[in-house]
Amino acid sequence: MPTESPGRTATAPAPEPAGTDGHGAGRPRVVLLGPQRHPTVDTVLRDLGLCGRRVGMVTAGWREREPEDELLADLVGGNAVNLRLWHRMQQVWEADPELAEADTRRRARLEEMQELYLRGLGHAMHAVADLAEHHARHPDLVEAARDDAVRIIRRMDTRHLERVAEVHAEFWGAWPPHERPALAEARAQVAADLAGVEALVVTGGHVGVLVGAMHLFNVAPQVAHLPVIAWGAGAMALTDRVVLFHDRAAHGPAVAEVFTGGLGMVHDVVALPSARDRLALGDRARMALLQQRFAPARCVPLDERVRVEIDAGGRLPDGTPVLGEDGAITGWRDQP
């Protein structure tokens, strides 16, 4: 239930203990931030009492620039360890060409699936736009036709996500990670790096690479008890559904598209990093349709200085900026 004014910082009302050692009581489970051009991650860590603690960093979204983490390490407080997931992923592909080849085939299949889904989606979105242009003699009929079209889009989104999950499940069924020595060894190294870590920071970058790397090294279960702070692609990766969007693409607005399942650490949230830069927020009808497609999940714009603290119960705190049913950004308020 949206409220009138969205806050920059939203905190869950009654956070549950996040840690198992007694130190993490009261900490949020996940903190989603806006872009870090003017970093606030240091403030967040300080507020959570994690200053100077051992913090894991995932910069895999930066791909070959993964090692350029000096500034982030400084902000985190010096006792940081970069999990080097992108680098390790390259090493796995090099050491296990058979697995790499299978991964290439998987990606080619996913790529074509995405293309086909997008092609169909484009037609369905066009139908919605077309109906909106129709001069209604009976508005209720137009509304019903529009609802039908939106239902089809929602079905396409859901089916696509299921099919993507099937491809991944098939891949891991055929290539069990514990049977691939290079991958098993790299996973063990990641696990060793994570031992003693008290929080995880996940940066932005290429969301496909980031989600792929975090899945490959099975990061999510290993940090289930830790506070995780993420922004950009990192924030998207933590959700259960990654939605790509870019209304200001070089050749015109792109249709928002479901891409893949995320790590599922945050449920029923569609993360929209840099929404003001990337979305036509002024186009209320467009934004309303975006929200309608993914309801009851909430579309959360993550702009500069936004900080959303989610507790272990996964509740979205009151005041979190969300897209309302009318397409305007409003503040979230949970049911009383």
Binding site: G204, G205, H206, V207, A233, R278
Partner: peptide, 18 residues
């Protein structure tokens, strides 16, 4: 060129979020 090349071979912009 920008319009044409980005349409023929779109970049990964839609996949990259800072």
């Amino acid at each position: 060129l920008r319009d044409g090349l980005s349409w023929i071979y779109p970049g990964p912009q839609k996949l990259v979020y800072e």
